[in-house]
Design a protein around this nucleic acid. Structure first.
Lengths: 335, 335
DNA sequence: ATGAAAGCGCTAACAG
DNA sequence: CTGTTAGCGCTTTCAT
């Protein structure tokens, strides 16, 4: 069997209670005793049993990350920021993917799987209307969210409305008036980013006194393929747009490709702007509104840890600034 | 306090042992008794305490995924396959990023963090020479690896030598003779893919009786930027290559961009081929050798579970087939 | 500053 | 088929 706390206690000539205190860095332990215990523990190659510790203390030392996708750029990038912080804090990171609510996966609900298993939950961009979200919140444990705000729950996001407005205004400033939009999906349960970015688009348009032509709205489902299909649909309109706002960079990538397939030059024939600051955007010369994605994860993880330590969690959503980066995919309207 | 197994036992009028058996689906429980217990447990909203169960049983029900990166395409895609299988098997997935051995991160070593904490380990593409790998193997627990083979440890990969050969031969078949390569890094501890793909390249070249010009070897560090820099270096040679084999799609993307920046047309002026089958490769019209990445994760996870259940684990690395997909980035050599 | 002792909630023989 | 009984290895009062 493995070395237990008793082995250490005996070898050090103290009680298990003292070993426990010493090794956890609690006060009220003579520093010489502590030193000796640490030495003995190291010599014996002692490793604490997490299960025992958890059972006795009631804390799991684990945090669940709940996300709709793990392989998509935004999500994996957020995740890397989260992982960074949690590993630093010596917390176990339990990864749980709940899939897309709009495309049911037959997976069992997450919430029950998390009960008694983690001390806190980090939710990445789950659609606010996803029933799973309610269940998670009903677990009533420390929670922090990214790319999603729920009243009373700590969260960190960009201001999606503002970001979309920024992108749209950029097109307007370039003189475009027939501006199309590539949305997420005509879903009942949109992502927050989806909902807000559409709102920002609408806002910018109306502020500029421009009409939104319903014929110039299409859906790209946040994928490259989807963006391509959507742009193609837009281009085959009787009166195609001269500029398009894509709700995400990935959809914008698809849009760029559709343009090329039609022999059109991005930024010259049709302007395209996205949101995200995807790694590839620079390389595809895409104008976009950049958000600090892994930073989002880091901040949310920090907030969660603070909350778990009993610190005051800011009830107001933390808003992280974005920045418009202009590249070749957008240019002045011709005529 | 939360409901415990005793509450259920009392409410059902049986012993805790029976509840335990009934709820875990063990045999030797009257089906009527089991039904009653399940009913009571459900009514009471009973959730087992993992810590207690783990402590008593000695099993953690968790598997660690160890990876150098979480945000990079290959790794997050593998991870999604893994997650899929583990969640299905009702195993907790502990995500641990160990960073790149070549760019030390000051993180504490992983292996100690995993002891007594998981029942098995899944390693994604850690360089074979990374000292952390040894420590993980020394943990001596069920392990399965992806994109990496160690003698005696179950693993799943593509045949990287063959994949690289396939890519290179494609260029050779197109009549190219001055063929450059964009490698990973001049590291002491290359990734398996790195080492093997370089070998496959060399093999194809020598089989065709072609020389490898040392001036046409550059390094892209598996990033887009790196690939761009590397290709730029290649293009500014006195005698630039007419075709380039990039060890990964991401580096190939960078290479394509470098070409455009130099006013060169991929597939016409210079051919570029990659390996991976990255989501974006189709959209960038990149010829590449496709590997089923998330499938790699799925297979490895399955193998690990089998191994943990005492099943015979194939000691031979599982080789997953690849396929050359020809697109516009490669074309015939112009004399 | 340290020790004794009582659990934490469950599983796993062993009986019956 | 079901119950009894020991623990699993640690934390945490409560004493001293």
């Amino acid at each position: 069997m493995a070395i237990t706390i008793r082995d250490v206690a005996e070898a050090a000539g103290v009680s298990t209670a003292t070993v426990s205190r010493a090794l956890r860095g609690l006060p009220n332990v003579d520093e010489r005793t502590r030193g000796r215990i640490q030495q003995v523990a190291a010599d014996l190659d002692y490793v604490i049993s997490p299960s025992a510790s958890r059972l006795a203390s009631g804390r799991t030392g684990s945090i669940a990350v709940v996300t709709p996708y793990v392989a998509r750029w935004f999500f994996s990038t957020v995740l890397s920021g989260v992982e960074d912080v949690l590993q630093e804090a010596d917390m176990d990171l339990l990864l749980t993917c709940i899939g897309d609510h709009n495309t049911p996966s037959g997976r069992s609900p997450v919430a029950p799987r998390l009960r008694r298993r983690v001390d806190g939950i980090l939710v990445i961009a789950v659609p606010p209307a996803d029933p799973q979200l309610r269940e998670l919140l009903d677990l009533d444990m420390p929670t922090s969210m990214i790319g999603l705000t729920v009243h009373g729950v700590p969260s960190v996001t960009i201001d999606d409305v503002a970001a979309a407005r920024l992108a749209t205004q950029h097109l307007i400033n370039l003189g475009h008036t027939r501006i199309g939009i590539i949305g997420g999906s005509p879903s009942e349960a949109p992502f927050t980013a989806e909902f807000d970015r559409e709102a920002g688009f609408a806002k910018a348009m109306s502020e500029a006194g421009l009409d939104i032509d319903p014929m110039l709205e299409s859906y790209g489902y946040f994928t490259i393929e989807g963006g391509e299909t959507a742009m193609t649909a837009l281009l085959t309109q009787p009166k195609p747009p001269t500029a398009v706002f894509a709700l995400s960079d990935e959809m914008a990538f698809g849009a760029l490709r559709a343009l090329r397939a039609h022999g059109l030059k991005p930024g010259t024939d049709v302007s395209v702007v996205g949101v995200d600051g995807h790694d590839m955007s620079e390389h595809l010369d895409l104008t976009t509104v950049v958000q600090p994605v892994s930073e989002l994860g880091r901040i949310a993880a920090d907030a969660l840890l603070t909350q778990m330590r009993g610190g005051e969690s800011s009830q107001e959503p933390i808003r992280v600034p974005t920045k418009l980066v202009v590249r070749g995919s957008t240019g002045p309207a011709r005529d």
